[in-house]
């Protein structure tokens, strides 16, 4: 049920190693509900795995997003500023959050099966 071409983290983020785009998973967006606000990092920010890189807020909840890998932010999805609901509508497509130049941490990411297991345990 989770796309095989993506990698994942325990914090419910996805990473596309081809496009270097990052977002939150279907499980995360469903748990949050209607997303009404997104705070994005600045392009050029250097990040290490686990750094807070932004915030996704639904009507009821505030959720931090953490860097799934180390590297530099090369783009952010500015469409989300006016249309945060794209995260609910198309979480692996138009709902991407940022794009990174990855320097480290790729090998620690989970594959779809590994992530599925984590979701089942929650």
């Amino acid at each position: 049920m989770y796309p095989e071409n993506l990698k994942y983290t325990k914090e419910h983020e996805w990473v596309d190693l081809e496009t270097k785009k990052i977002g939150i998973t279907q499980y995360a967006q469903e748990a949050l509900g209607d997303v009404v606000f997104v705070e994005l990092p600045e392009v050029g920010t250097i990040l290490e795995v686990g750094d807070s890189i932004g915030v996704v807020e639904s009507v009821k909840a505030v959720s931090d997003i953490y860097a799934p890998v180390s590297g530099k932010v090369i783009a952010v999805n500015e469409e989300l500023l006016d249309s945060p609901e794209l995260i609910n509508q198309d979480t692996y497509g138009k709902g991407w959050i940022l794009q990174m130049e990855i320097t480290e941490g790729e090998e620690d990411l989970l594959d779809a099966k590994g992530y599925q297991k984590i979701v089942e345990e929650e």
């Binding site: 509900g33 209607d34 009404v36 639904s58 009507v59 009821k60």
Partner: peptide, 20 residues
């Protein structure tokens, strides 16, 4: 309904989505 605890009860916080 997505069930949460409120005021000592298990209650639905939403069915389809809060905004809708």
């Amino acid at each position: 309904g997505k069930i949460v605890e409120f005021g000592g009860f298990e209650m639905p916080v939403q069915y389809k989505g809060i905004i809708e």
